[in-house]
């Protein structure tokens, strides 16, 4: 579905940001892209919908070569959520803002109405449709931006820190929406610094370091590699750090989230109870 082949990218000022990156992402994957600030994450994302064109190498999305396909055309395949919602909001109502992308891609007016209402309901801003987006809070504006991406019903969602400006609960809500979309078959590629979210939602993790792929694999196997994570200024989730302390006692070998820890403890306690009763 997405194929990145020996991608190199150099900014006009000569700085090489991406160096020989290769990977492919299949339909329905949930990939977290992590790495320290300035490692090239956003630059890489911008190649996925042709905002940036490779200096060398090739990026194909749904068989379209991004270097000779316009971004406005790729927009039908790739939905892209930016870090800062204020870079896109310009309409006087939330409704128009969400409908903007649909109008651009030539969706007819009946469908626009249905899609706008649906995506607004999905992110929980259906009561704001007639409000001016500039009067909303930062967190709500981020949701408006997310809704405007979701409305376009693209198969691929590219999200650059989707939970910025949200508090913990709102962040989880957004991630649950994204998880549902992923379950319904959409491919998700997400940049985040929140390792708890990575452990909880992503099934695959790519670590970028100085413009190269440092690690690419299943979430659990990547999170276990603490040294590599440390290279990228990252730390595994705290619950994993705790579980690791018990590894030498032969416990919690496969624990990366609070839920998994809970399950393990419960089954352990149940075992104890059985021993006592027996």
């Amino acid at each position: 579905m997405i194929c990145v082949d020996n991608l190199c990218y150099q900014y006009k000022n000569g700085i090489r940001v991406l160096k020989d990156i290769s990977f492919s992402i299949d339909k329905g994957e949930f990939v977290a892209l992590i790495g320290r600030n300035g490692s090239g994450k956003t630059t890489l994302l911008k190649h996925l919908n042709g905002l940036l064109k490779p200096t060398q190498g090739r990026v194909t999305v749904n068989g379209l070569d991004t270097s000779n396909t316009k971004t406005s055309l790729l927009a039908k395949h790739v939905g892209f959520l930016f870090q800062n919602p204020d870079h896109q909001i310009f309409c006087s109502t939330v409704y128009d803002e969400i409908a903007f992308g649909l109008k651009n891609t030539g969706v007819n007016s009946n469908d626009i109405d249905r899609l706008v209402t649906r995506s607004a309901r999905r992110v929980g801003i259906e009561q704001c449709l007639e409000l001016n987006p500039f009067s909303l809070s930062k967190g709500q504006r981020q949701r408006v931006a997310l809704a405007s991406v979701l409305a376009m019903e693209t198969e691929i969602l590219v999200l650059d820190e989707p939970t910025t400006g949200q508090d913990y609960k709102e962040g989880i809500e957004i991630m649950e929406i994204i998880k549902d979309l992923n379950c319904s078959g959409k491919t998700v590629i997400m940049v985040t610094h929140d390792m708890e979210l990575v452990a909880r939602y992503a099934r695959r993790v790519i670590i970028l370091q100085d413009g190269t792929v440092l690690e690419d694999g299943q979430t659990k196997s990547v999170l276990g590699k603490t040294e590599k994570l440390a290279l990228a200024n990252l730390q595994p989730p705290q619950i994993y750090m705790l579980a690791r302390k018990f590894h030498k006692n032969g416990m919690f070998k496969n624990v990366y989230t609070v839920e998994e820890m809970y399950e393990e403890i419960i089954s352990y306690l149940e075992g104890e109870v059985n021993v006592c009763n027996g």
Binding site: T71, A75, G79, H87, Q88, N104, M152
Partner: peptide, 16 residues
């Protein structure tokens, strides 16, 4: 710089 970001954000939504 800001203008560049805005242009990219709108292009991602099919703006041409």
């Amino acid at each position: 710089g800001e203008m560049e970001q805005i242009l990219q954000a709108q292009m991602s939504r099919g703006y041409s």
